[in-house]
Design a protein around this nucleic acid. Structure first.
Length: 467
RNA sequence: GGCAGGGUGGCUCAGUGGUACGGCGGAGGACUGCAAAUCCUUUAUUCGCGAGUUCGAUUCUCGCCCCUGCCUCCA
């Protein structure tokens, strides 16, 4: 079966057929870089990273574009508070963002355009909108999009203009012809960053940047546009209205929206203050735990974030690593299998092709893992299974460390003296050979006090750090 | 109120018109000097509630209840 994608625009799964054979263009709404990213942001990034990887796995040459919103009210406010230039703040946050993404094994997109570096494209698009009668300059000099002029407005989110208006609780802006109209270009206020334009000095509205940058990098019609569920309306609706009206292209053909991250069944968000930043979480949990946690639920469903949930994922990952350790400890010839070119099982391919069903893909990983352990226990060959496991885990970006590094605590736990532990293991095994179990247990207890757990296997004794 | 998406074992998470995938946890067993790890067995007559379609529904249709998101900046 070929790749099926749930398209928000159609409200059903559709077979993915790219605009250009062998190629795929994908735009994902990035972040407004005024602060560190939280787990909600991590989800979009990880979800679309897997989608990106899968499209490449299927052989597509993918042009993956993810923007940075680096001009915005919040950025200006935050920079003012800190007494620094907005650009200083955004540069700093982009660096932090990349550190988070690297930690989470998210591959870099093909392009990461910044809004401030695409002013010309935005101004061009706004000009086209005015020329074609879709936009107007308001009394106070802002350029606004005339929503009622665009016939298909509401198609993506399933909203009807009249119902929207009646349900509106927003203060009506008198300078707008219609309360639904949204800003394309704002007049500059003193002390704010501003760019020259045909409508005077000012800055772009939020929605226009995504329309302009996606079309600039991917063309007026492209394959995939993604983002969080909360962006469906009005952001994505407005993007469509702008782009289609301006250049007559179809804009994105497949719209993908990931579910939100909740805390206690409530959306994680800056405004509610119930968020955890990625770097905060990574102080406590390995990034693979967070990544696997995010892939453990289908991308369109909401997911509840908690330490307890991460703990459970950690236990599961440990088991995967136990298997990896067994394989790493094997003889040279078999060890090579671990790094041999991978191959994916039909079940895994089927799961991923079915709208990127990562929970099912993970189930396949656990089953393969169990199969390997069973065969190893029985002394049977495992080459096919190992190649499958390796291919699956590297595709999803989990179990990517050496097992020893994983169990020994990695770089963060420099206080662990491996040589000392190894020496004690030698002593203890000598005692065990002499059947001096009191001495052997004493050594094991001594290590246990320091959170070192020993495991006596057929191939010798290994150790790991307790959580 | 409108729109979108959900309610599956103790928890979590897939899925299917013919009695349900994985993970965590629980119980028993094998292995072990004892452990740990691993493996094996076991743990939902049942998929929010009611009705309908059907030989048969958790899966399709309708109604109801409950939850979340969006309708304002938000991944």
């Amino acid at each position: 079966m070929n790749l099926q994608i749930y398209n928000t625009l159609a409200r059903k799964k559709e077979e993915f057929t790219p605009l250009v054979k062998g190629k795929a263009g994908m735009y994902v709404c990035g972040v407004t870089i005024y602060d560190h990213c939280h787990v909600g942001h991590a989800r979009v990034m990880v979800v679309f990273d897997v989608i990106y990887r899968w499209l490449m796995q299927l052989g597509y040459e993918v042009n993956y574009v993810r923007n940075f919103t680096d001009v915005d009210d919040k950025i200006i406010k935050r920079a003012n508070e800190a007494g620094i230039e907005p650009k200083t703040l955004t540069d700093e946050m982009i660096t932090a963002f990349h550190m988070d993404m690297d930690a989470l094994y998210c591959l870099r997109p093909t392009h990461e355009p910044r809004a401030t570096l695409h002013m010309n494209e935005m101004i061009d698009m706004i000009t086209q909108l005015i020329d074609q009668g879709f936009a107007y300059v308001s009394d106070r000099g802002d350029v606004l999009y005339s929503v009622r002029k665009f016939e298909g407005y509401g198609q993506l989110s399933g909203k009807k203009i009249d119902e929207l208006e009646s349900g509106s609780r927003v203060d009506v802006d008198r300078s707008k012809d219609d309360p639904l109209d949204f800003v394309l270009w704002k007049q500059a206020k003193s002390g704010e960053p501003a760019w020259d334009s045909p409508w005077g000095s000012g800055r772009p509205g939020w929605h226009i940047e995504c329309s302009a940058m996606s079309c600039a990098h991917l063309g007026s019609t492209f394959d995939i546009h993604g983002g969080g569920m909360d962006l469906k309306f009005p952001h994505h609706e407005n993007e469509i209205a702008q782009a289609r009206a301006a250049n007559g292209g179809a804009f994105a053909r497949y719209w993908l929206h990931n579910g939100l991250v909740n805390i206690n069944a409530e959306k994680m968000s800056k405004s509610l203050g119930n968020f955890f930043t990625i770097c905060e979480v990574l102080k406590k949990y390995d990034s693979e735990v967070l990544r696997m946690f995010l892939l453990g639920t289908h991308y369109r469903s909401p997911v509840d974030f908690s330490d307890a949930a991460l703990d459970v994922v950690k236990v599961g990952l440990d088991r995967l690593y136990e298997t990896k350790r067994r394989l790493e400890q094997m003889k040279q010839t078999e060890q090579q299998l671990v790094t041999e070119k991978g191959l994916l099982s039909d079940a895994f391919v089927g799961a991923m092709n079915d709208d990127f069903n990562t929970p099912e893909a993970l189930a396949e990983i656990f089953q393969t893992c169990k199969e390997i352990n069973r065969k190893l226990d029985a002394g049977e060959g495992v080459s096919r299974q190992v190649r499958e496991l390796t291919a699956m885990t590297s595709l999803l970006g989990i179990v990517q460390k050496d097992a020893d590094a994983w169990f020994h605590g990695g770089a963060n736990n420099a206080e662990v003296d491996a040589a000392w532990i190894e020496a004690l293991i030698v002593d203890r095994n000598k005692a065990r050979t002499e059947r001096n179990f009191a001495r052997a247990d004493a050594i094991r207890d001594e290590l246990a006090v320091r959170d070192i757990i020993l495991e006596d296997g057929a191939d010798g004794t290994t150790w790991k750090k307790a959580d």
